[in-house]
Amino acid sequence: MSRKGIVRRRGAGQAALRLLLYAVLVLFCLVYLLPLVIMVSTSLKSLGEIRTGSLISLPTQVSLDAWLKAWGTACVGVRCKGIAPYMWNSVLMVVPAVLISTLLGAVNGYALTKWRFRGADVIFALMLFGAFIPFQIVLLPMARTLGLFGLAGTTWGLVLVHTVYGLAFTTLFFRNFFVSVSDGIVQAAKIDGAGFFPIFFKLMLPMAVPTIVVTVIWQFTNIWNDFLFGSAFTVGDSNPVTVALNNIVATSTGVKEYNVDMAAAIIAGLPTLAVYVLAGNYFVRGLAAGAVKG
């Protein structure tokens, strides 16, 4: 509220309050950063140092062994090829799922707002509902359906699942954007003789670039971070990286290698973290737009 230069009384009290304010903000920064710092520092320590050293001490000897092991040789279940193949699984799942769900959501949102036909609102409301259901309610029939189509345990099965259930969000994002676009633009284009798809590809999509970015980031983050579908619908070799990570961490056999766990966790989190750092504003906009849904 004092974000503008409103004149205030000056004095020691104000200065002290200001100091306190910054102290609290910095304290919270530490709270939020600490787990990440501990993860990174632990991943760079040797096992011996982890046992003897303290939680927050920095590594005395930086070692990348844990990272190399997490990437290439750590055991997930009985398969000891590290986390790399599962990263690849996640990439193969996330790229098509994000692209397809975004494109379909864009067309859908466009058709529902700019070519309003009778029942368009009802259709939207019914589709939007899909964004609110707890996915547990569809786990069982989905597992059977994937089995029926021979997609059980495959990456393509997961692509299908994420596309279908992402559609509600992507449609919502694009609908909200296209609602704000003036109908006059579409009318003018129609008078100029452009049809449904020309208007979409030549006029609407270029206008919607920010929404596309928001949607892609939102879908990417959600699908990459998904655990429920991944653990329910895949087994072993086809696990996405979140499931594989959990398997590494949860393994109770043999010596517990915490540094490898941490390195694996960071590797698994790196893609979404990178997107967040590079395109944080779009990420926040997605969160705000998704606030209607949850």
Binding site: Y32, N225, N246, A265, I266, G269, F283
Partner: peptide
């Protein structure tokens, strides 16, 4: 800094 955990999977932060 306050918001970055939202970008991470619970599985990742849960590990920490």
């Amino acid at each position: 800094i306050y918001l970055y955990p939202m970008a991470l999977s619970f599985i990742v932060t849960g590990t920490a």
